[in-house]
Simulated assay, not measured.
Amino acid sequence: MSGKRSGPYICGIDAAMDVVGGKWKALILWELEAHGVRRFGELRRGLPGVSEKMLIQQLRELEEDGIVSREIYREVPPKVEYRLTELGSALNHALGPLGAWGRERIDRIGAARVHPLPA
């Protein structure tokens, strides 16, 4: 991993949040876990509200941290696919209990979206 974020960290939660911090990274992880392989446009459509610039930035950071892999196919137009690495799948699995906690909170406070995104 050659990511720009490299500690020092206070604890494991601090190190983990450095990788998944922000609104979109956990949703990118969920989208890739749910669908396996996604092209950029598919990811963007699956994450309503994310800007192209933000999605590019978040994908680059996840790739730098070894969470997402990017494969470029030499076609016209170029085809780029994203998928979770083994490390990314492990991270997504670790976030499962947090997602369950969040779903309980949504139910408790009645804050579901009209078209909810699973957490």
Rank of each mutant, 00 (worst) to 15 (best):
S89I: 07
D65H: 13
P48W: 01
I72E: 15
L84I: 01
G49L: 00
A100S: 11
L98Y: 04
K79H: 13
G36I: 00
S69W: 01
L59I: 00
E86K: 04
K25W: 03
L84M: 01
R45I: 11
E86L: 07
D14G: 05
K79T: 15
S69F: 02
Y82G: 09
G88Q: 00
G49S: 00
E75Q: 13
P78E: 15
E81N: 12
R105W: 14
Y82D: 08
A90M: 02
E104D: 07
Y73F: 10
R45Q: 13
W101V: 10
V50H: 00
A15E: 03
L91F: 05
I56V: 03
I56H: 14
L84H: 02
K53D: 15
G36K: 02
G96H: 13
P77Q: 01
L84S: 03
D65M: 09
R38I: 06
R74A: 14
R105S: 08
A16M: 05
L43C: 05
V37K: 12
S89T: 07
G88H: 00
G22W: 00
D65T: 06
D18G: 13
G41C: 14
A90C: 05
S51V: 10
L43T: 03
I13N: 11
A16F: 02
I56Y: 10
L47F: 04
L98A: 11
E64W: 02
R103Y: 04
V68P: 10
L59A: 09
G22T: 05
V50W: 00
R60M: 11
K53I: 12
G88M: 00
K23W: 09
M54Y: 14
G46W: 00
R38F: 12
L32G: 06
L98N: 11
R70P: 10
K53N: 14
A94W: 01
G102N: 12
E104W: 05
G66Y: 01
V80M: 08
Y82A: 05
G102E: 13
V50M: 03
R103N: 12
K79I: 12
I72P: 12
V76Q: 14
M17K: 11
V37Y: 10
L27H: 13
L55W: 02
Y82R: 03
T85A: 04
R105T: 11
G46T: 02
V76M: 15
E42G: 09
A100D: 14
G22L: 00
W101K: 10
